[in-house]
């Protein structure tokens, strides 16, 4: 079983890296880029047979470590 975790900055939190990427895209001639937000993607392999509740456990991992909920949102996908 695999958990895919997306961690993104909350709206309103300054993202200077996203801004720098947006400027670079503009400089490369890509028109129409209104905004760029950069986040993190984390894959977690879960042992088979760890049973139900996998999503709850990964959510708890996010709350405790993977995301800083002061500044970040997270989204969890479980793939069996």
């Amino acid at each position: 079983m695999k958990a895919k975790v997306h961690v993104t900055l909350k709206p309103g939190v300054l993202d200077p890296q996203g801004k720098a990427i947006a400027h670079a895209l503009e400089a490369l001639g890509f028109d129409g880029v209104a905004d760029v937000r950069q986040g993190k993607y984390i894959e977690i392999d879960l042992e088979d047979g760890s049973g139900g509740g996998a999503e709850d456990r990964v959510n708890e991992m996010c709350e405790k470590l993977l995301a800083n909920t002061v500044i970040e949102n997270y989204r969890v996908e479980i793939e069996s």
């Binding site: 939190v13 300054l14 200077p16 890296q17 720098a20 800083n68 002061v70 500044i71």
Partner: peptide, 17 residues
């Protein structure tokens, strides 16, 4: 200390990167 929750808020990368 902020990551541990002993102080509020967070420390982001410098605006200048």
């Amino acid at each position: 200390l902020v990551e541990a929750g002993l102080l509020p808020g967070a420390l982001l990368p410098n605006a200048s990167l």
